[in-house]
Simulated scan of single mutants.
Amino acid sequence: MPIALLTDFGFQDSYVGVMKGVIATIAPTAQLIDLSHALPPQDLYAARFTLLSAYPYMPPGTVYLVVVDPGVGTQRRAVAVRTSQGIFVGPDNGVLSGIWQSNCQRNQGIVKAVELTNVDYWRSPHPSTTFHGRDIFAPAAAHLANGVPLDNLGARIDPQSLINLPLQAPIATAKGWTGAVQYIDHFGNAATTLLASTVTVSDWSVTIGERTLPGSQTYEDVLTGQGLALVGSHGFVELAVNRGSAQQQFGLAVGDRVELTLHPSPAPCDPA
């Protein structure tokens, strides 16, 4: 069973390699997939969206190991959550919530959730207070990849108690939809919470603050340096600048409100 890793550890230090070493000791045949280790440090929203946009392309049954954990060593829970897409292991701080926090429904698709309390499946019963990725999360993911039942790793918890990061879900309006920026990539493109399915006509636009961006098909539909909106490869409406950074040019931030306006074609005139 493959294990997909997502962290903010970077590559300068040994943290990623150490976690892989712990996994290899327990599950030497598990295939490891690096989703990213270059997330902005402690950026829960970036972790949430990266996981959300990546998991559809992973093999069925993948174990997802997510370690973006500014609350490491505190009372925040360590959890494992089974959904129809696989098993997600990480801190209960919202980084996993994009998987089930969709279509305006809380905790959709969760089959089972447990808190990782069984020290028999930790690297040590006395874990470091600064590196749960090594001592709790990596061992748990490895044991799960080996086929250990989820219930063995700890006590079941109510899925409704899992932390969800606050983001404006899509809301229908008289003219279209409202939503929010949920992620900004390293190009400066801003993915919103508006799904591709909200774009139901060919003529549309997105307003953010005082600026309105035309709905487009490709980045090259506008001149270099001009802003636009389009449906990104991740399936969400995205704000961009052709060969530039929407984040820098428009001063965008996660949580900024956006308004999508649909411009239906006028009814044909009656020649009579």
Rank of each mutant, 00 (worst) to 15 (best):
F11N: 06
V222A: 10
E210M: 15
T62W: 02
V89G: 01
L35W: 04
Y15N: 08
W100C: 04
S216R: 13
L195D: 14
N118Y: 03
N93D: 08
F9V: 02
V89Q: 00
S14K: 12
A267F: 11
V148H: 07
I184G: 00
P28K: 12
T25D: 15
R134D: 04
Q42I: 07
G209K: 10
T50L: 08
G251Y: 07
Q168P: 09
A172Y: 10
F236L: 09
Q249P: 08
L6Y: 02
W177G: 01
R123C: 01
I110F: 09
G109D: 06
T261F: 10
D185S: 04
Q226G: 09
D135Y: 00
N164C: 12
H37E: 08
F137W: 08
I163N: 08
P149W: 13
L144S: 02
A190Y: 02
A272Y: 15
A246I: 05
N107G: 09
T218L: 14
N164H: 10
K20M: 06
I208Q: 08
T224Q: 15
I163W: 09
L239I: 09
D256L: 07
D34R: 10
S97P: 04
L51Q: 03
Q168S: 12
V114K: 01
G209D: 13
D221F: 11
A113I: 08
A174F: 10
D13Y: 07
A113C: 10
R106N: 11
L116T: 00
D13N: 05
V63D: 02
Q42N: 13
I110E: 07
Q217L: 15
R243F: 11
G179A: 06
D120G: 08
L167S: 09
H143S: 05
S216M: 15
Q182K: 06
G225K: 12
G17H: 11
T207F: 11
N189A: 13
P125L: 10
D270A: 13
P59S: 10
L5N: 07
M19P: 01
H143V: 06
P125F: 04
P70V: 08
V66W: 00
A46K: 01
T198S: 15
A229C: 11
V16R: 01
T212P: 10
H37M: 14
I208H: 07
I184Q: 00
V68G: 00
D92A: 04
S233G: 09
R243Y: 14
T193P: 03
N146K: 15
G251D: 09
P268T: 07
R243M: 14
F250C: 09
L260K: 07
D221C: 13
L230Y: 12
V16M: 10
L239R: 00
